[in-house]
């Protein structure tokens, strides 16, 4: 699109497409429940059938929108390990690029929920002394997440400068 959010050197490492799959599942479950509720309303409540209809339409619209969003959003994530900083980008409508010098990292978290574990991906989060940093990278394959965590911890120690 434009070159505003390209890394200063190299290219973005993209995250796993499984992130989109996981998010689609998380969106489809509540939509499916709402559709079921809508159908029940449609069949059982004679006077309030329009509510059931509205519910089904909204749930389907939400599911379609969520399906498309998950794909676009997954493709927008990227990270790059430069010589001195880690860069993370994300967002389609609201784009964001954050650069964290390795020496500023206080600690690195790796987490994976049950669904993420089933798909073998994890989220790596970097913490600096600033709460605004908010640098998380979701949808990393588990092996890559561990590698990145170890690498970042190593680099953080090598560059470490305290608070």
């Amino acid at each position: 699109m434009d070159d505003l959010f390209t890394p200063p050197s190299g290219t973005w490492q993209r995250v796993s497409p499984k992130l989109a799959t996981i998010r689609r599942i998380l969106i489809l479950i509540p939509s499916a429940l709402l559709v079921v509720a809508g159908v029940l309303l449609l069949l059982l409540l004679a006077g309030l059938q329009w509510i059931g209809g509205v519910l089904i339409v909204l749930a389907l619209a939400g599911a379609v929108w969520g399906w498309l969003w998950a794909g676009r959003n997954q493709r927008s994530w990227g990270y790059a390990e430069n010589a001195d900083d880690l860069l993370v980008t994300r967002g389609v409508m609201f784009k964001r690029l954050v650069a964290i010098p390795y020496g500023r990292m206080q600690f690195v978290d790796v987490e994976a929920g049950p669904l993420a574990r089933a798909y073998g991906v994890a989220t790596v989060t970097l913490h600096t002394a600033s709460p605004e940093t908010a640098a998380d990278i979701p949808g990393l394959p588990a092996a890559e997440a561990t590698r990145l965590r170890n690498r970042l911890t190593e680099l953080g120690e090598a560059h470490g400068a305290g608070v």
Binding site: F5, K95, V98, A99, I100, T133
Partner: peptide
């Protein structure tokens, strides 16, 4: 030397 991280942001209207 106290810079923790640097961010660039753009919303749809800004774009």
């Amino acid at each position: 030397h106290k810079t923790q991280s640097v961010e660039l942001r753009q919303g749809p209207l800004q774009r």
